[in-house]
Design a protein around this nucleic acid. Structure first.
Length: 470
RNA sequence: GGCGCCGUACCCAAGUGGUAAGGGAGGGGCCUGCAAAGCCCUUAUUCGCCGGUUCGAAUCCGGCCGGCGCCUCCA
């Protein structure tokens, strides 16, 4: 299939061509594990999962790397502020290491529930300090750094391409005057590569370095780890839109500054935000919802995945409970349709007719067009409801499409799974009672079956049963 | 102050120059012992507003109104 992706670098959609035929190296910015992921964070991981599944579907051999930031970043700019992980540890009475482990586990529990596949490589920042130190040394050798106030800074004036990704303009910065004041910086956009000084005690999280005991700057880990696992240049780098102006901009300066190679990354993809009526969902504002809170309201995690798939990843998506409910209904109806399909045994091997192929092509065109999941979903619906297509083909198409959508639809296509004899007997007894026009007793049995998870529907061909879906 | 995005039916949301996908919700009908499911029909002659370009615009240009994001840790 043909895949076109919107590249933030250049702001243009272009055909995806990997550096090396048949192979893709992809890096996605992972979680900072000092709190639960909120559903806005999760939206980005769902998008990245669709991309990952698409690449696999297209037949590429993929190495997907994701970091886990377990060394905290400061809460504010400059060399003051408090490390988030340390703050969380203090508040919860745990060690920093326990905090990181606890929330890493929680993160993967969420992503598992959302059918988000694990990257080939998941790497922790704290396990790659030597690589980071090495990167700073390389930058130092090439003249991109300066020492001030005990910290090592990146001197962006030595990197002419600085800000290209975000289309930053030197002049823009002045007017707003909202930039943190760090007297040591030569330019407001210079940033710290290695800290040895800060105004708070850093406890366990310090490491030796040529510049003294300290800890890495915020952007270092992604450059160091991505290059360790994917090489000095690779294909795709993803993250949320918020990373464009600072984090990814600085990553580029670090990586290309150290290697002298360009481009470090060929395709930059960014997911837009999930917003609420109170504005952007964020941990600092406290207006965030977690996957667990959705579950507490009776939603299935995949309802949320369906909800996200209903909008394009590059548009802001407005969260509301009503919209989530609509997604839940839609997903249930879809499963309902599928469980009523009853394809014949061995349907998995059914070859697609011309009509079936057309749906598949249409689906791949939608996905190939910068991952248009809303259109892909529309194609799925039309295919599933197409009476002119045999159930076997509809089942095959569903399974194929679901490999990218990840909605666990294959499970819904019950081929002839057997009903427990006891329940089957009830179904049959009820039908006999109906024939005798004893509807009161027949209805009672129908209620009992419903309690036991079986829904009976009467058709001209006799009763039909199915298992209740959640 | 600067950068950028968006405004499509009751709701969510595709479509970005050739005559409005899909889903949800609602209404009517067929079917049914009653249901359920299913099926059929139905809800935008129109895409925030005003101009312009064009044979032709929701789609391009300009202005206005409204919503949002970023420039600071952030998905």
């Amino acid at each position: 299939m043909e895949l076109r992706l919107f590249n933030t670098m250049g702001r243009i959609q272009e055909p995806f061509v990997p550096r090396e035929a048949g192979k893709v190296g992809m890096y996605t910015c992972g979680p900072t594990v000092y709190n639960y992921a909120h559903i806005g964070n999760l939206r980005t991981y769902i998008f990245e999962d669709v991309l990952r599944r698409t690449l696999l579907h297209a037949g590429y051999r993929l190495v997907h790397v994701m970091n886990v930031t377990d060394v905290g970043h400061l809460t504010s700019d400059g060399d003051e502020g408090e490390d988030k992980v340390i703050k969380a540890a203090r508040e919860r009475g745990m060690s920093v290491w326990e905090i990181a482990e606890f929330f890493t586990k929680a993160f993967f529990e969420d992503t598992d529930k959302l059918n988000i596949q694990r990257p080939e490589i998941v790497c922790k920042a704290t396990e790659h300090i030597p690589e980071m130190i090495d990167l700073v040394k390389r930058l130092e050798e090439r003249g991109h750094t300066y020492l001030a106030g005990g910290n090592v800074y990146y001197d962006i004036s030595t990197f002419p391409r600085y800000g290209e990704l975000a289309r930053l303009d030197e002049q823009d910065l002045r007017a707003g005057a909202r930039v943190g004041v760090d007297a040591h910086k030569r330019s407001p956009r210079d940033f710290v590569l290695w800290f040895t000084r800060s105004k708070f005690e850093h406890q366990a999280m310090v490491w030796d370095s040529p510049w003294g005991k300290g800890y890495p700057g915020w952007h270092l880990e992604c450059s160091a780890m991505s290059m360790k696992y994917l090489g000095e240049q690779f294909d795709i780098h993803c993250g949320g839109v918020d990373h464009i102006p600072v984090h990814h901009t600085n990553e580029i300066a670090q990586s290309e500054g150290a290697t002298g190679r360009h481009p470090w990354v060929r395709y930059w993809l960014h997911a837009e935000f999930l917003v609420m009526d109170s504005g952007k969902m964020s941990k600092s504002k406290g207006n965030f919802l977690t996957l667990s809170s959705l579950e507490e309201e009776g939603f299935h995690p995949l309802d949320y995945r369906y909800f996200c798939l209903g909008a394009h990843y590059r548009s802001q998506l407005f969260f509301s409970w009503e919209a989530l409910e609509a997604a839940r209904n839609a997903r249930r109806n879809l499963i309902e349709h599928l469980s009523g399909l009853h394809p014949r045994e061995g349907w998995e091997q059914t070859p697609l007719s011309e009509r079936g192929e057309a749906y598949k092509r249409e689906f791949e065109e939608a996905i190939g067009d910068d991952l248009s999941t809303p259109r892909a979903l529309a194609v799925l619906w039309r295919a599933v409801k197409d009476e002119d297509l045999p159930p076997e083909e509809r089942a095959v198409l569903t399974v194929t499409m679901d490999r990218i959508l990840g909605l666990s639809l294959a499970e819904a296509i019950a081929s002839d799974d057997a009903l427990e004899p006891e329940l089957l007997e009830l179904v049959q007894r009820r039908e006999a009672l109906r024939k005798q026009r004893d509807f009161a007793e027949a209805d009672r049995i129908r209620d009992e079956l419903a309690r036991r998870g079986i829904i009976v529907e009467d058709t001209p061909q006799g009763p039909r049963w199915k298992r209740k879906t959640t």
